[in-house]
Nucleic acid binder design. Structure first.
Lengths: 97, 97
DNA sequence: CTGTATCCACATTGATACTG
DNA sequence: CAGTATCAATGTGGATACAG
């Protein structure tokens, strides 16, 4: 629960669900995340076997992140969440204070 | 995302998914939650229209919490998450440090 | 029983500067 | 480009005491 009860982790997974991404791409796609939080989140997802890191060992550096098999299996949850949000976000945005 | 990227909120919703619960019941079912966090979490779920509060106005006090219609619609997401956890928690428990 | 109020240690996070 | 390091500010959460 510590793992998935995390806003940033969910957003990172969501971004990676559509294919591999580089550090900079994730920074752009995930609005509001800092470099620090991005790295921290990715590292934890790595530790838990949801995300794989591929360092191309080039100069300038190129590093790509992608879903592992375990990560891919989580996409059903993500899309379930997506569907719910698509349908209910408008409603949610009217209520909260 | 602030709403669902929250460990306690997910656990509270999960408990309420199986029917109305009282404060004390939730405290027991959700291991590790404090009274403070429980109240705080419930209040936010209430604000967002996911949970309803029914005060029986009795002495001693009896208050029951239940899912709203919007809350119920979220159960598909919860069960999706449950399924995933059921299947992959064993694997997760071997890796993390 | 169902909360609210307060204190306080600790964790989280952003900004900034720096490295290979 | 892809990070790491550090600091300061803020937030979070538990323990406790109290109230209706």
């Amino acid at each position: 629960m510590e793992l998935i009860g995390d806003k940033w982790a969910l957003l990172v997974m969501h971004a990676l669900a559509n294919g591999p991404r580089r550090n900079g791409q994730l920074m752009q796609e995930i609005e509001g995340i800092s470099q620090k939080m991005l790295t921290q989140t990715i590292r934890r997802l790595e530790m838990n076997g949801l995300v794989a890191r591929h360092d191309f060992q080039t100069i300038p550096p190129k590093v790509e992140y992608s879903m592992t098999e375990l990560g891919c299996s989580f996409r059903t949850v993500l899309s379930s969440l997506d569907d719910w949000l698509d349908e209910h976000v408008p409603e949610l945005l009217t209520l909260p204070g």
